[in-house]
């Protein structure tokens, strides 16, 4: 079923990571990504792995969930690894072979980097509800309102898009069943035939998406929505002591990584 797709899904919980302010988590993810790209040698990679595993443990997310999320990326990971293995110059593993020790080393680091990158962002989306995420983003980008960037509108659109993904998936499921009941065939035939077979799904889906958008706009207007100016929140975001600690730890981690790079570790 289509419903089984996980796309940065939020897992409710009450771990320390869940409780952090979304703004802190957003900043930390950026810090984490910068730090990750400082890694050159195996010691620095080991440090990133250690920090990642520690964060995962703190957030009570099981490794199984992360692996499940990584599955769709498998193709990209394997492809990058293969390219690196075969196209890196150096000493061959066996005389005459195209595979080099340098290639294996580089491929392994590349896989690690992609996996860590994805895991880091999963850590954010698994522990932060989409609403909190967009709220945090809006507040972080608040200074940009000074240069007339419609930050509120952008984040509002983002949260609405996120809100409607499950609804539209359910709708697609329903339309597919109905067209199947009329003998539509989505699985057989040539590529062109299958592309054509999507039409009976896409047209009703678009029609209903527009209808929903219309209804939503009316519902918002009838509740006097008029943009972000002077708007207050039901859930006020407040930084706490743990946020300060987390940010300091994050910066220390980044400093450590830069140091590792300087030392060539």
């Amino acid at each position: 079923m289509l419903k089984d797709i996980t796309l940065g899904q939020f897992f409710p919980g009450d771990s320390i990571v869940h409780k952090l302010d979304p703004r802190t988590k957003l900043i930390l993810v950026i810090v984490y990504i910068i730090a990750l790209f400082q890694a050159k040698g195996w010691i620095s990679y080991a440090l990133v792995v250690l920090v990642t595993v520690l964060c995962l443990a703190l957030s009570h997310i099981r490794f199984k969930t992360i692996f499940k999320g990584l599955k769709p990326m498998l193709f990209i990971i394997v492809l990058t690894a293969a390219l690196n293995i075969f196209y890196t110059a150096g000493t061959p593993v066996l005389p005459g072979w195209i595979i080099t020790w340098e290639g294996i080393d580089r491929a392994a680091k590349m896989i690690l980097r992609i996996v860590l990158l994805i895991t880091g962002t999963f850590l954010l989306t698994y522990t932060t509800s989409p609403m909190a995420l967009t709220d945090g983003l809006e507040l972080l980008l608040d200074p940009l309102k000074k240069v007339k960037l419609p930050v509120h509108e952008m984040t509002m659109m983002m949260s609405m898009a996120l809100r409607f993904i499950p609804t539209l998936i359910e709708e697609t499921d329903k339309i597919m069943s109905a067209q199947k009941a009329r003998g539509a065939d989505f699985e057989n035939g040539s590529l062109i035939q299958r592309a054509k077979a999507l039409l009976p799904i896409l047209v009703p889906l678009f029609v209903s998406a527009f209808r929903r958008a219309d209804e939503l706009a009316v519902a918002m207007e009838s509740r006097c929505y008029h943009g972000g100016e002077g708007r207050t929140r039901m859930k006020q975001l407040k930084m706490a002591g743990r946020d300060a600690i987390a940010l300091v730890l994050g910066l220390l981690f980044l400093a450590g990584m830069i140091l590792c790079k300087r030392l060539g570790l």
């Binding site: 329903k174 109905a178 039409l199 009976p200 047209v203 009703p204 209903s208």
Partner: peptide, 10 residues
């Protein structure tokens, strides 16, 4: 015939 079948016209 599903519920609200008119939403499936295309």
């Amino acid at each position: 015939v599903f519920q609200y079948p008119e939403y499936q016209l295309f």
